[in-house]
């Protein structure tokens, strides 16, 4: 065996390419909310590409009320220990120190999440300051680009977490894809005004107009409860799916988790979706969004 030449350059961590590239590896996959190491193992065995470690799933946060915060470090350590797939965890919007703690714990992605109670009503976290990459929620293109300008390396629709109702995720995904489509139709002169309207940096607006997509991976989140929900979000343009309460608030989590993984890959094959949808037991009980009081809507948190 010949010895190849040694590499000339010092390795560099935390680059935009490494952060965004991590999300590219998750595409076509399902990221599952888990609250214990046992659930994390069930998720991994079902084929999850990553788990989101949190203390309470959104459905329980809704039920219990009160301030929702970053999870206990012991609990996050336990989940990191339990699985070989990436582990994500949530910080409150604008809570720099929760994000610093999550980075120190060695999580693979931080979700600056509206599901937790916001810590700052004006500012999101400066995500460029971190080695750990961030995913953030968005309801429209302007919001997505503001998060990317703050350093987010992955975007997800907000949806309305903990409801088992996919209607808000559909609204946000259609809005983001529609906004991108409208940008594509503009000429260069019009992009400046579009940036102003979107309240987003011109450079990012121009990049989206040229690419026809976000410069980072776009997932869907919030209200996915069935294999068909996951496939719907992919048909609408999501590159992968977060599932929160939908798995471990259902009758047979292991089976439902595996079914959602399969439906996410074969999102355009109704026969596969029909097969995996059989005999899954009870889905989580859903909540209709229009009966939610304004103050209990998570999607309006963040701006």
């Amino acid at each position: 065996m010949s010895t190849p030449p040694s590499t000339p350059q010092a390795p560099e961590t935390g680059t935009a390419r490494v952060k965004r590239g991590m999300a590219e590896q998750l595409k076509g996959g399902v990221i599952m909310d888990v609250v214990t190491p046992e659930q994390a193992r069930i998720a991994e065995d079902a084929g999850a590409v990553a788990v989101m470690a949190l203390e309470r799933v959104p459905a329980d946060i809704r039920k219990d009320g009160g301030v929702a915060r970053m999870s206990d470090p012991d609990m996050i350590d336990g989940i990191i220990e339990a699985v070989s797939i990436p582990v994500m965890a949530k910080s409150r919007i604008g809570h720099l120190v929760e994000a610093q703690v999550l980075q120190a714990l060695g999580v693979d992605y931080i979700d600056e999440s509206e599901v937790l109670t916001p810590a700052d009503e004006v500012n999101h976290t400066d995500k460029w300051a971190f080695t750990t990459p961030f995913v953030c929620g968005a309801t429209n293109l302007g919001e997505a680009l503001r998060r990317i300008s703050e350093g987010a390396a992955m975007i997800r629709s907000k949806g309305e977490a903990g409801t088992g109702n996919v209607v808000e995720a559909v609204r946000h995904m259609r809005q983001i894809k529609g906004d991108i489509g409208r940008l594509r139709a503009l000429d260069n002169n019009e992009l400046f005004a579009a940036a102003k309207e979107l309240r987003a940096p011109y450079e990012l607006v121009r990049e989206v107009a040229e690419l026809g997509k976000l410069p980072v991976v776009l997932f869907s989140a919030g209200g996915v409860a069935t294999p068909a929900d996951a496939a719907l979000m992919r048909q609408l343009g999501a590159e992968g799916v977060f599932v929160g309460s939908g798995i471990f608030k259902s009758g047979d989590p292991a089976k439902r988790a595996a079914a959602i993984v399969k439906a996410t890959t074969f999102f355009d094959d109704p026969k596969v979706i029909a097969d995996v949808s059989r005999g899954l037991g009870e889905a989580m009980v859903g909540i209709n969004i229009d009966v939610l009081p304004e103050g209990e809507r998570y999607a309006t948190r963040g701006w």
Binding site: P4, V18, T131
Partner: peptide
């Protein structure tokens, strides 16, 4: 995951025969 978790992910120049 021999090179570590995401915080240890990196870019480096590599000579490939």
């Amino acid at each position: 995951n021999a090179f570590g978790r995401q915080n240890e992910s990196f870019e480096a120049a590599v000579e490939v025969a």
